[in-house]
Nucleic acid binder design. Sequence first.
DNA 1: CGTCAGCTTGACTCATCTCAACTAGGGTGG
DNA 2: CCACCCTAGTTGAGATGAGTCAAGCTGACG
Lengths: 249, 249
Amino acid sequence: MTVSGLAEQTSRPAALACPHGVHEGHCTTCPVRNVSVCAALASDELALLGSLSEDVTFADKSTLLMQGDPANAVYNLTEGMVRLYRLMPDGRRQIVGFLLPGDFVGLALSQRYAFSADAIGPVAACRFTRASFASLVDTKPHLLRRLHEAATHELTQAQDHMVLLGRRNAEEKVASFLISLRDRVVRLGRSAITLNLPMTRHDMADYLGLTLETVSRTISKLARDHVILVVPDGIRLLNPARLEQIGEG
Amino acid sequence: MTVSGLAEQTSRPAALACPHGVHEGHCTTCPVRNVSVCAALASDELALLGSLSEDVTFADKSTLLMQGDPANAVYNLTEGMVRLYRLMPDGRRQIVGFLLPGDFVGLALSQRYAFSADAIGPVAACRFTRASFASLVDTKPHLLRRLHEAATHELTQAQDHMVLLGRRNAEEKVASFLISLRDRVVRLGRSAITLNLPMTRHDMADYLGLTLETVSRTISKLARDHVILVVPDGIRLLNPARLEQIGEG
DNA sequence: CGTCAGCTTGACTCATCTCAACTAGGGTGG
DNA sequence: CCACCCTAGTTGAGATGAGTCAAGCTGACG
């Protein structure tokens, strides 16, 4: 547990990692500029942010960070998907969240990471050292406020997920997972009818507190009922209203 | 859902609600002075805090606040225990946390409460209006930082609880619930061997994602195995090490 | 073309839930 | 003071949703 996953990251010139401009200005042209914590900042502050951050990429299945490691960096995801999870000593895994572009990792500002994170497919992110990000936060009170808003929003989501894990059955779990993933994707301005699912059934199972077989069977049942259609690497929502209904309000 | 639980609260003179001094100075003599968010503040600031807050009490089973209601107040619990929970439309309940003295309710600073809260036994708390607390936070950056720390700590606890709900069996759930409650009580400087359990089996079940019968059976089994001893209104920890072992690391 | 990871499906098991009966303690009103 | 009721808890017997184990399918990739 002492080897940091950071070793696996590929740090590279901005021209390669970020297709949106030269390094110094990358924040102003960031694809997640308006959905992220950074939206709190004015454009002169963004230039400062750009000078403090670095664009990095991660290969499929590579580790961004590991639970228990010193929290040396914080990340803002710009492309791809990341799973956050905890492992029990005997290997049981609970995925506590999937990150989408715009999501922030490490906003705890704490000494050590509380979970592990790795890439599902290729990932691009914006990286800050903890020290530089912490000192930035010290000088920008509205950034701290934004961070706190993000944290409380996550807390609300965490409570939603506790309801799901503790009180919903398999079909409700899968349905509300699909609906809430769709809602997040829509908020990013992407397609609402065909949902990309880059994670495995096993990942979904470890997120929903099920086994992969139960996830598979439940998806098959929803498809049999014409609520969804299984397509390569994802599903199509044939009857989103029904799916919402199954997932409860 | 529109009637605020605040109607049930008993607001009273500080001399009655707070045994520790006159109203103006109640924060400096507060029993949770050092375990709470308020520990971030200097003594002159505490005087200000005292002038903004009000001591209130709640009767057993009374409601402090309800999910969806406008978040008009924030509370700092000073005595007793509170359950936080969400209800599903069909009445299923998930308790997302139990509050102990020193715990803060409503640190989201958001428009509406994300959960309901009610008293388990008699409760005393320190009440701020949302507006006055928000403006206080605006003028005290280290209070915001403290709030953010508290929020991220809660987030970590929430993730722990997701592991429990998603990946632990009944015996592990009950064992780790008892251990973590003991740890919190110890941090408040109270007894470690006899644990008071003012909540019902039903409450425990709704916290652990079980039924009350399963909780009862599991407690009976732990008692049969001489790991705990059931006493009126609580349990005695006969073999805490074994209990920790069952609850996993 | 063989291998392998991911997915699906079937048959069976079992942990937890459901339904139900019974006990204990506390409060209340006749 | 006792009879009654009500809430909380315990325990048993049986039902069931999800887990386990196992087989087979598919597509990607070397």
